[in-house]
């Protein structure tokens, strides 16, 4: 009988010890503000070239919420569809004149010159900031935002570009706020855009 009691008390002791270890390890987990610093380092300041051929610094976006999309003007399907959708959703956010900026960055700088992104973004009859740059500038920005792109030869000597098509959302403080997936429906997309525009 005594042995059983000792054994049971030993179990209790182990349980208390395990609980204590758990408590201590939870205290050592990164605090929320640590994680926020990690998120804010995604992206960062950049310089590209605007549709007017002049340098475009990301500081022009300070204090503005924006939806960032990477594509190329020779893109027949996904790029115009995504930009058209962003324009349409922005029009549905009737609260302010221009709740968020739509920024289009070309991942095909060899073909897309400033005039090309200008003509392309003008198609949507709504302000869209079109950016391109030197291949080195675009590569740098792609790295900052974790964007993938790859040329694929097409018959007839042309090429298309496989690329990350997720839309990146940034709020007015410049912090990364979330993404809109390519196949996401309008309702959750609109909710996310409302949030960054707030």
């Amino acid at each position: 009988m005594k042995r059983v009691r000792v054994f049971l008390w030993a179990l209790v002791g182990i349980a208390i010890a395990a609980f204590a270890v758990l408590l201590i390890s939870r205290q050592n987990e990164p605090k929320p503000q640590d994680q926020q610093i990690t998120l804010a380092s995604f992206g960062g300041p950049f310089t590209l070239v605007g549709a007017d051929g002049q340098p475009f610094s990301s500081s022009k976006l300070n204090g503005k919420a924006y939806a960032l999309f990477f594509g190329f003007t020779h893109c027949p399907d996904v790029c115009p569809t995504t930009l058209a959708r962003l324009v349409k959703l922005r029009q549905q956010l009737a609260q302010v004149d221009r709740p968020f900026e739509i920024v289009f960055v070309s991942v095909d700088p060899e073909r897309d010159k400033p005039a090309d992104v200008g003509a392309y973004t003008a198609l949507f009859n709504s302000p869209v900031i079109g950016l391109t740059g030197s291949p080195a500038q675009v590569e740098q920005v792609k790295k900052q935002f974790g964007i993938f792109s790859q040329k694929v030869a097409q018959p007839g000597g042309e090429y298309s570009v496989n690329h990350t098509s997720t839309v990146l959302l940034f709020d007015k403080t410049g912090h990364f706020s979330g993404t809109i997936a390519t196949d996401e429906t309008d309702e959750p997309a609109l909710a996310k855009l409302k949030r960054i525009s707030a």
Binding site: D77, N162, T179
Partner: peptide
């Protein structure tokens, strides 16, 4: 011009044709 049927597919956030 030439024309052909293509499929757009998105996997892991990357779109390809």
């Amino acid at each position: 011009a030439t024309a052909a049927v293509h499929d757009t597919a998105t996997a892991n956030g990357v779109t390809s044709m």
